[in-house]
């Protein structure tokens, strides 16, 4: 039954992502070209809504800090390089596939050897260096989660106003 709920939520996510044209790869490229208003507007709004919702409902661990953050930076850099090369983040790749762009089927299939190399070959070698931690900011800063969420939402709201005001004046 849970899988059915998952599929239904996924269909909803896919519909909204398609209508929004959301893709962080294309958004980052636009941002680097100085045309980031659209992606920043979407991201700031997503950040505000989701941060308020998640903090009110209770935080849950997402991701792992590995190697005191070194592997997070490295994995992020690999992912960032990959999405700019391929032209699609995870949501963007799935969206483009749904829209009929078969280039993203190649991207999707090409993830498999990358995951295999990492999980089956590199992870067993590197796991001694991982020192896995599941941390959220409320555990490392002497602040209440609501305070941290407030600061994040405040910065996002300021950014939202700024990018849209700047565009209008320009």
């Amino acid at each position: 039954m849970m899988l059915v709920y998952g599929l239904l939520f996924g269909i909803g996510f896919g519909f909204f992502v398609q209508r929004a044209g959301l893709c962080f790869a294309q958004g980052l490229s636009a941002l680097f070209m100085g045309k980031g208003r659209r992606i920043l507007t979407m991201w700031f709004l997503i950040l505000i809504v989701t941060t308020i919702g998640f903090v009110m409902l209770g935080l849950k661990p997402v991701g792992q800090v590995r190697g005191a953050g070194f592997f997070n930076l490295l994995s992020g850099a690999l992912f960032g390089a990959g999405i700019i090369l391929s032209g699609g983040c995870v949501l963007g790749t799935l969206r483009q596939l749904g829209e009929g762009n078969m280039l993203y089927l190649i991207v999707f299939v090409s993830m498999i050897p990358g995951m295999f190399l990492q999980v089956k070959i590199l992870d067993p070698v590197l796991k001694g260096l991982y020192a896995i931690q599941e941390l959220n900011l409320a555990q490392v800063l002497p602040l209440h989660p609501l305070t941290i969420a407030g600061v994040i939402c405040g910065i996002a709201a300021f950014g939202l106003v700024t990018v849209n005001r700047k565009e209008k004046r320009g």
């Binding site: 994995s75 090409s110 990358g114 992870d123």
Partner: peptide, 15 residues
């Protein structure tokens, strides 16, 4: 697409 997908695959699973 192939190289990008491969790097994405590594990146999403390393951490």
């Amino acid at each position: 697409a192939v190289l990008g997908g491969f790097l994405i695959g590594m990146g999403v699973t390393m951490a």
